[in-house]
Design a protein around this nucleic acid. Structure first.
Lengths: 226, 226
DNA sequence: TATAAAATAATAGTTTTACTATCTTTTGCA
DNA sequence: TGCAAAAGATAGTAAAACTATTATTTTATA
């Protein structure tokens, strides 16, 4: 991101992956789009996978920054968690003339193909290299908010990663595999419906154990206990 | 699956994808392993992606059969849903001499790379071809059990797909990205811990609206409502 | 049973992708 | 001005993805 070519590279990579999909995207095509040479790109990234992971890290860190910015001075942990959901679901309006990265295009890439970064045979090697630190840190940030809301909640990390993945999945499903979700992509208030559903899921689970102790109907309680 | 070569192909494909990962797996390597020719494989499958989708469909249909078999004559919908969770999490002991498909290897493939089947640029084309009917039908089956438990629950499809994906994710995370889950892969009773967690999540969400009406503490209720 | 048609197998290609090597040119900047 | 680092141009290799062609076997039925 320090050199002109580096910026151009990342900018064009996001646009081209958004357009072609990760599988059809090649360094050669990127070079042609940029009016540059394939070999020049290899000076920045060893291969397509490393470029992809770089872009995802950029996204995850951008998310963390947006969460920090938007939750600053918000006392209530519950309110902060709701803001997290807003940040995950919404993309912001970007300033085309200033921004290097097209955040909306990158968001589409993340929703469609982000999981591929870590769902492969060589995850462990990648993980040792620190490829997923940003994602793990983002989940950690969300998990700690959950812990604030309910300190004795056992599954804060799982809930944090599930929140992110469920948000992206249902956005994707609504557009491409509608039978896998209850949301309708056509709905005018789709994004607020998605947020509402995520809040329902997240707060439902967080308060499940609290509520279990209150709601003493034996049959239901039995359902929830092993 | 009707011809000898077809069986050998599918059997060897599962073993090789398990071993190499989808990216490193090629038709040439498969042909060498089978002692057959690359072109012969192309007569069965147009390309690697179609073979992969075939294997996933086999898996999803196998899951549906196992669910039907194990929930037969089980009255309580809650109990049936728990059985669904058991079926998703556990792999069964296989009979090496009879089975064409190594279900444990296929399960590892699904957990690690199953999502790649539908997370790509050409989903819509694939979906039109009916590539994901088995998966959608499996989710539908689970969603209808959820509906039985709570007929006014709004998110049965989402919860069904989230259940499957969360089960696979947390199994995968525990082994490769432990900071993204609360479960410990080393734990002796790992699989029962995973089931317990999934039950907690699923029943927690299902009963969230019921319990909301009972648990009237205003602050918490406010948290859960938009 | 003979034989043509159809299905399957093996062989040998082509094209594209992923990556490397090498040399030349440009450019930032001391 | 000089010079090191970055970038560009060119050309290559190895493997992957896919195809066309020919050979062999199976099957269908006269």
């Amino acid at each position: 991101m320090k050199t002109e070519l580096g910026k151009k590279l990342v900018q064009n990579a996001v646009e081209l992956i958004d357009l072609l999909g990760l599988e059809q995207f090649t360094f050669r095509k990127l070079a042609v789009k940029m009016g540059s040479a394939e070999a020049s790109i290899y000076r920045y990234f060893e291969n397509k996978h490393q470029l992809f992971v770089y872009l995802l890290n950029w996204y995850w860190e951008w998310m963390a920054v947006r969460i920090d910015f938007n939750t600053l001075n918000v006392e209530s942990a519950s309110k902060r968690l709701k803001i997290v959901i807003d940040v995950i679901v919404d993309t912001i309006n970007r300033n085309t003339s200033i921004d290097v990265i097209n955040e909306e295009a990158l968001h589409r890439i993340v929703v469609r193909e982000g999981i591929k970064a870590y769902h492969h045979k060589l995850v462990d090697e990648d993980n040792k290299e620190g490829f997923f630190l940003s994602y793990k840190s983002l989940c950690g940030k969300i998990a700690s908010i959950i812990k604030e809301i309910s300190p004795d909640f056992l599954y804060s990390r799982t809930l944090a990663s599930t929140l992110i993945e469920t948000a992206n999945n249902n956005l994707y499903f609504a557009h491409h595999l509608p039978r896998l979700t209850d949301l309708k992509a056509e709905a005018k208030d789709f994004s607020s419906q998605l947020k509402q559903m995520l809040e329902f899921f997240v707060f439902g689970v967080i308060h499940a154990n609290i509520m279990m102790n209150v709601y003493l109907d034996s049959e239901l309680k039995e359902d929830m206990l092993k």
